[in-house]
Write a protein that binds this DNA or RNA. Structure first.
Length: 270
DNA sequence: CTCCGATCCTGATGGC
DNA sequence: TGCCATCAGGATCGGA
């Protein structure tokens, strides 16, 4: 689920409520998500003040000064800030209880999320070898063109690779390729500079627009206040197999690419 | 290196 | 109504 816009939306929702607060307790209700949760998290975090929260790729990093709590929402995760005495549900795996009375609660039905204490974010294996942030200037058509030379991998899984560029998941990859009029199954190494220049621009556009809408909710995602993300209404091809292309009215097709469902217009995208 | 498929887990959906 | 197969926003890992 959560791609860059959903993680960014979550960050913007929780940061103003939590930064500066002190942790009173960490509550673990699940032994393992993507990886086992450290049973010592509570002892590790209690009494520490949250200095800031930042996002890198689809990770949230809660900075406590002497280390970071790294959180990933996986496919179905979401974070909410609640008041105390809100009873946890079946899929509520982790709480951070803060001195101001707030509870930050991780919900994740599919348990693909991650909660990890990392002493040094700059050295951590999950954060090394990540590509650039798509909304920063170093991410450009020239960059995509250069990184793709000689690669036969299809362009959609290419832009979904976190080593190439972070934050672009299955929904926004289909949407961006539609806007850039590039067929998702073209070998990445065969796409030219002009096409990549269009692609870089529309990746930025679609991510910015989705952030402004609070992300996309298909099923599980919710903003930190419980509202859904509203970008689903703006999706032009994702999930629209058989429907009319908004540009040419031809049918939108669905194919599987790298084991992920992929949507595109055979007429508009070449 | 590069690429593909299997894998972790639970729930929703659709066919029979 | 039940049962079974398939699919779902991610990303790591192993092997070809």
């Amino acid at each position: 689920m959560p791609e860059l816009p959903e993680v960014e939306t979550t960050l913007r929702g929780i940061a103003p409520l939590l930064v500066g607060q002190t942790v009173e307790a960490a509550v673990l209700r699940t032994a393992k998500l993507r990886w086992p949760l450290d049973p010592q998290l509570d002892a590790l975090l209690v009494g520490k003040a949250l200095k800031d929260i930042r996002r890198r790729a689809k990770y949230l990093l809660f900075n406590f000064g002497d280390g970071c709590l790294l959180l990933h929402l996986g496919m179905s995760g979401s974070l909410r800030v609640l008041t105390r005495n809100t009873l946890p549900g079946k899929h509520d795996h982790f709480d951070l209880v803060f001195s101001g009375g707030q509870i930050m609660r991780l919900t994740d039905p599919r348990k693909f999320g991650a909660v990890l204490w990392i002493a040094d974010p700059d050295q951590h294996r999950l954060l090394l070898n990540l590509g650039p942030e798509p909304l920063e200037d170093v991410f450009s058509g020239a960059y995509l063109h250069q990184r793709s030379r000689g690669r036969r991998l299809a362009v959609k899984p290419f832009i979904m690779s976190q080593q190439i560029v972070v934050g672009v998941g299955n929904i926004y990859a289909s949407e961006a390729l539609f806007r850039a009029r590039i067929r998702p199954d073209r070998p990445a190494g065969g796409v030219g500079l002009k096409s990549y220049s269009r692609l870089a621009v529309v990746i930025k556009d679609v991510l910015r627009e989705a952030i402004a809408a609070g992300g996309t909710t298909l099923q599980d995602f919710q903003q930190s206040d419980g509202r859904p993300g509203y970008f689903k209404q703006e999706l032009q091809v994702y999930g629209r197999d058989g429907q009319a292309c908004p540009e040419c009215s031809g049918p939108i097709r669905s194919v599987r690419l790298g084991q992920r469902s992929t949507y595109f217009c055979t007429h508009c995208q070449r």
